[in-house]
Write a protein that binds this DNA or RNA. Structure first.
Lengths: 326, 326
DNA sequence: ATGAAAGCGCTAACAG
DNA sequence: CTGTTAGCGCTTTCAT
């Protein structure tokens, strides 16, 4: 059996409340009593149970982070920084990869209501929006619009489009393919993709959208999208898309004997570590992952600890990674 | 205020236990009573609190997974499959990236004792081994030896060494550099590295060890190791190391105008997705990540649910990924 | 400075 | 089939 606070109190000959004071370094306890209690704790090898604490304090100290795919470089990088930030602020991180399954997302929303978690950072998006409004517990959205009342973490989409367009136009590219995701939930991708098309048109280039598919985050899906792209745009000379999508296009271009960046330019959006580990560093628009993670944590804790109504969350600025692919 | 089970009981005019039965679909409840209770639950928008449940049941339903770096492809892939497996078996996943800090690892071991988690899968390794013996709560080690009593998940190291040696010898490589980690805790790397050296010697090749460093998982550390490698082994014609280390060597070779695989062969050990996303698919020894994750989950739940003493855990077999780098 | 008592929300004998 | 009772382990007034 493992010792409880009552066992310690009994052995030390004091009351539970005094033991509690010692455990939490609160109030005033005489040196002698403290000494007795500490001896008893040591003897019984006592560790306070978080379960009792949690019930009493009505909190778990856990924030859940829900993403479509835990191993995807974008999400795993976000997770890394978010966990770090949460840990620093005294919280633990629960993680969930939905792999696009609605029921999993729903299950985690229920856990939020059941107080398994104190708050959620939502990076997946298969649920209908109304679902999120049914609860008024702390939720923050990552790069997607859920409702007016749910704060969202995002980078500056217009800036991304401008920078990407600038890079390709500077190289004189005119036949562009843009790898886009299927828009199931209003997210900010659409804004970015449309702005990009408009800017390229102004520069005299035409853009063809190629869909990567719905909730597509696997290597195979990216590879298939790349094949579709080259089949559909035989004379493509510029490609823009997320890191993984562009990398798949690099492989496909290589297979087809097309040289990058001589014959075809590629700009990766996200700029996670995978753009820096190959023979060639990709030219990329880099999302500020650590800042995004910290903003997300900050927002969810503002909702939780300060009961903030609609905390502000400015779009974060991106930067260009000068690479060799454009 | 949020409704508790007592509120529901009161409104429905029944006792708490009956409400509990309905919630958990246990025992027999008359249709009429059930009906009344369900109506009350709906009216109060009742959701059972996990905090009360947890205290009563003395469990949290959470398994912690501790790794050095959440975004590293090996660990993020492991995490993805482990979370999936845990979810399927009714558990939630808490995640922690230690970034090599002992105090973080210690903090999570304490949480295990405080019952924040029901068990731990330990993929990091900065603590002294004795620390793990102080607790008899469920712990499983990932690819490292902690003690006789702690089950370990690992792949067949001898097989890895044999396959890697075979690949390089078949290409006639004689000047090999092996990227190794610093050995702080007895893990199975050492066994693999030594076997590899022996096999290569039998084949008439010499092997130089190049250390990546202690707890080295960042891009910069890999890049520096690659530079050291080429400086120290100017006539190297074969390299073996983990995915990320080998990728850094690919970049460095490219910078030095060395062609892979014509002048130099590379074999990546791990074979995670990063070996398949560049222009070139790397020749790799592939660890069975999903099987490793499932074995880890299985072991930790055997310890937890069945109180197993020393559950068996056979080393898992690896496979070769035929690539273009060797 | 310390103790008594109440209660967080739930489950599980056991009785009826 | 349902209610009573007891308690999981902790914190927190409020007295003393």
């Amino acid at each position: 059996m493992v010792a409880s606070i009552s066992d310690v109190a009994k052995l030390a000959g004091v009351s539970k409340s005094t033991v509690s004071l010692v455990c939490n370094n609160k109030g005033y306890v005489s040196p002698e009593t403290r000494e007795k209690i500490e001896r008893a704790m040591a003897e019984l090898n006592y560790t306070p149970s978080a379960l009792g604490q949690n019930l009493k304090l009505r909190r778990s100290g856990i924030i859940g982070i829900i993403v479509p795919d835990i191993s995807h470089p974008f999400f795993s990088t976000f997770l890394k920084y978010a966990e770090k930030s949460l840990y620093r602020r005294g919280y633990k991180t629960m993680v969930c990869g939905t792999a696009g399954r609605q029921d999993v997302e729903e299950a985690y929303l229920q856990m939020l209501e059941r107080r398994t978690m104190d708050g959620i950072i939502m990076g997946a998006h298969s649920q209908k929006v109304e679902r999120y409004l049914r609860t008024n517990r702390p939720i923050v959205a990552l790069d997607r619009f859920l409702s007016e009342d749910i704060p969202v973490v995002r980078s500056n989409k217009a800036q991304i489009a401008e920078l990407a367009a600038g890079l390709l136009l500077k190289r004189g590219r005119r036949h562009i393919a843009q790898l886009v995701s299927s828009y199931t939930v209003p997210n900010f991708e659409l804004e970015k993709d449309e702005t990009f098309v408009r800017l390229m048109a102004q520069g005299g280039a035409e853009v063809t959208d190629v869909s990567v598919g719905y909730n597509a985050f696997t290597e195979e899906q990216y590879a298939l999208a790349a094949q579709r792209l080259f089949r559909r745009c035989p004379n493509v000379d510029g490609i823009v898309g997320t890191d993984m999508a562009v990398l798949a296009c690099m492989a496909e271009a290589h297979r087809r004997g097309l040289r990058v960046p001589e014959q075809i330019s590629m700009v990766a959006i996200d700029g996670t570590y995978v753009t820096r580990i190959g023979e060639m560093t990709l030219t990329a628009i880099v999302q500020p992952m650590e800042a995004m993670a910290e903003q997300a944590v900050d927002l969810v804790l503002q909702l939780l600890e300060e009961g903030a109504e609609r905390p502000a969350s400015p779009a974060l600025e991106v930067t260009v990674q000068e690479g060799e692919s454009c």
